[in-house]
């Protein structure tokens, strides 16, 4: 017969101690976890209903707007695009008289507004007394048109030379602006082109260009350029301004 085993008294005391320790630590771990979950979720719920003090700024997609878009420049742009019948109505463009009325600035100041567009735009040049675009002019015009990027408006400022009478030059300038517009219509296949292009035609009475403008990109870079030649032209450029 075997003798019954008697556990030592010290070991026996571990039985309730272990159970209690397990239960107590279980309570701590579980309740701690539950409390943490509750606090995390309720914290998020509270933040959800509380507007952020410093909400991170999100950039919003828009047309481009660059440094030269001064209020004065925008005023001219807006008048050309809206007051001169563009932007959904019948296109008629702006005549020198209109420009003088709405621009209310000197020739030099008017031309200076366009100076920052030197690299964005180009001067399409014409033969004397002609309004027909040559191949180089067409190519340059297309290059400029298709380099739109974020611009909303395309500006065309046609000019006639200083020689000849005012009426004749005005009519020639008008035809040159139209030549540009017709070619754009052909290549762009854009039904909304009328709302994008702003046409100005200037005769010899306003904002003639000085010889300095010969350094601008033009369709006849290889030929001699003088004050006479640079004014037989149409300046074309996308304008990176928002209105």
């Amino acid at each position: 017969m075997t003798q019954p085993f008697n556990p030592p008294p010290v070991a026996a005391s571990k039985v309730p101690a272990a159970g209690l320790a397990g239960l107590a630590s279980g309570a701590v771990f579980v309740l701690g976890s539950l409390l943490a979950v509750r606090l995390w979720v309720s914290g998020a719920a509270e933040r959800l209903t509380t507007p952020e003090a410093e909400k991170p700024k999100v950039a919003v997609a828009d047309q481009s707007e660059v440094g030269y878009c001064t209020p004065q420049f925008k005023q001219v742009l807006e008048r050309v695009l809206h007051s001169c019948g563009l932007g959904g109505e019948t296109r008629r463009g702006c005549q020198p008289a209109d420009v003088k009325t709405f621009a209310s600035i000197s020739d030099e100041d008017f031309n200076a507004l366009f100076t920052p567009l030197k690299d964005r735009g180009a001067v399409v040049m014409f033969d004397e007394g002609e309004d027909k675009l040559d191949e180089q002019a067409k190519k340059l015009l297309e290059d400029k048109w298709f380099a739109r990027r974020g611009a909303r408006y395309f500006f065309v400022v046609a000019r006639a030379s200083k020689t000849g009478n005012q009426a004749k030059n005005r009519a020639l300038s008008h035809r040159r602006a139209n030549s540009v517009m017709f070619h754009l219509n052909e290549v762009a296949s854009d039904p909304e082109i009328e709302s994008k292009v702003g046409l100005l035609w200037l005769g010899n009475e306003f904002a003639q260009l000085s010889k300095d403008y010969c350094s601008w990109p033009n369709s006849r870079g290889d030929l001699k350029c003088d004050e006479e030649a640079i004014n037989r032209s149409a300046f074309v450029s996308w304008v990176d301004c928002r209105l």
């Binding site: 070991a11 571990k14 320790a21 397990g22 630590s25 279980g26 701590v28 771990f29 579980v30």
Partner: peptide, 19 residues
């Protein structure tokens, strides 16, 4: 929740020791 249980059970075993 499960790891909380395992942690508590580990404490239980630890206190029990060799018994």
């Amino acid at each position: 929740g499960a790891f909380a249980f395992y942690a508590a059970f580990a404490v239980y075993l630890l206190v029990y020791g060799s018994r």
